[in-house]
Design a binder for these strands. Sequence first.
DNA 1: CCATCTTTGTGCACGCGTTCACAAAGACAT
DNA 2: ATGTCTTTGTGAACGCGTGCACAAAGATGG
Lengths: 249, 249
Amino acid sequence: MATGRTHRPATRSRGIPEATVARLPLYLRALTALSERSVPTVSSEELATAAGVNSAKLRKDFSYLGSYGTRGVGYDVEYLVYQISRELGLTQDWPVVIVGIGNLGAALANYGGFASRGFRVAALIDADAAQAGKMVAGLPIRHTDELESIIADNLVSIGVIATPAGAAQEVCDRLVAAGVTSILNFAPTVLSVPDGVDVRKVDLSIELQILAFHEQRKAGEELGEAVATARKAVKRPGSDGDVPAVMPV
Amino acid sequence: MATGRTHRPATRSRGIPEATVARLPLYLRALTALSERSVPTVSSEELATAAGVNSAKLRKDFSYLGSYGTRGVGYDVEYLVYQISRELGLTQDWPVVIVGIGNLGAALANYGGFASRGFRVAALIDADAAQAGKMVAGLPIRHTDELESIIADNLVSIGVIATPAGAAQEVCDRLVAAGVTSILNFAPTVLSVPDGVDVRKVDLSIELQILAFHEQRKAGEELGEAVATARKAVKRPGSDGDVPAVMPV
DNA sequence: CCATCTTTGTGCACGCGTTCACAAAGACAT
DNA sequence: ATGTCTTTGTGAACGCGTGCACAAAGATGG
């Protein structure tokens, strides 16, 4: 995970392990690529390589969905694409709202991977009244005041939070109160939500810090601190509680 | 994670479990907030709540770093901030390059959480010659041709890939050849790298698909498919192999 | 129809991560 | 100094995830 996932007691949803669910999109992407090249069938070995996982793991993952393979041949690409899509709920239309249209929010709004997977950006919401009405990615920015009605009118159940850290919890509370039950959080804060609401977290800063940890270790072990001391050591300038004007990722 | 992490055989780096390393930045953030409020000490219970984890887990995590707590009192906030920062390598200066300055790349360049953690954006690199020289976040966009020299001149060991999926592997190869040993990948592709290079992956599309899976499950169980059928089902429009003009996240 | 060969599906064992529960340690008051 | 009270640090048990290794299944050729 690079991505941080949030406190889920590793619930086994409908018999499908959480770890498997997290890999299904990976398989789906690899299968879609094969489908475009009109490849009819694929073995677990080939597909596993394409998805960057172990072939035994892949076969076990698929076994949770049912027996869709043919021994001696492999898996039917088209059929598997359909089954995984259905399992993930991608055959439905999922309206999504993005709250916080700063640099990141705008980038997300322009993201091409949305529509192709059944996700549809229903509305863009920002607290800055001066931004209201401005067009981003073909949609007008709406003011936060309209949040509740937008959620209700569009039957939105998935919300994306791309606000500064300080505003995230309040936005989260309002989204949940309005009926949103799944939240993707880009703000660097721990969100508290009632039971029944899923939160997933994406935190660039954390990912970089994890990389730095291993990087430091590599430099220390392999080069005898040579590189480490070459980089000029700096004392920590400050913190990042509420990031100012700039959009936190 | 939400964040997708990439094939790391759960190596235990220097005795500190990978899962613990992934939580250290979380603790650090909570501690930094306490430090700003001039809170001198904190108990494992309080800190665990603030970081959204179990208190026993937090204590065990800290025990891998050494015994920094005082029984009956708790942990010294400032001291712990320093220890974790040092453990994560944040007392060093980490120059970072961002390759692919589309919507997302620009958002990352403007991200405020970089500098505050010892990460410094050394350069922005894009393949589009027409973009070269344009200023983003106070830095000029440099052309891909300069990639190797930029890496070498700045002793860069961490690279961020925010290019379209089709370009990611080539960029990755060049970064690695130039000396980069840690990569944060935002492109929706599986990157293959030699041993000794760390890759972490952030994939918005995957996070949303995981949310959709649970959302579908909730709707199916609790509302008896009512909502599910209310949303108009759509057939999948297409795939996302190489996303066209728009920046993939 | 039978033999052979490929590939799936899974039983099993192992290791990591999480959590409980408690003993040890130290602060603090008397 | 002694007792009480709070909180840490960790031993131990449990559960999930992973990967090996193999038997069963089916395709394919003779």
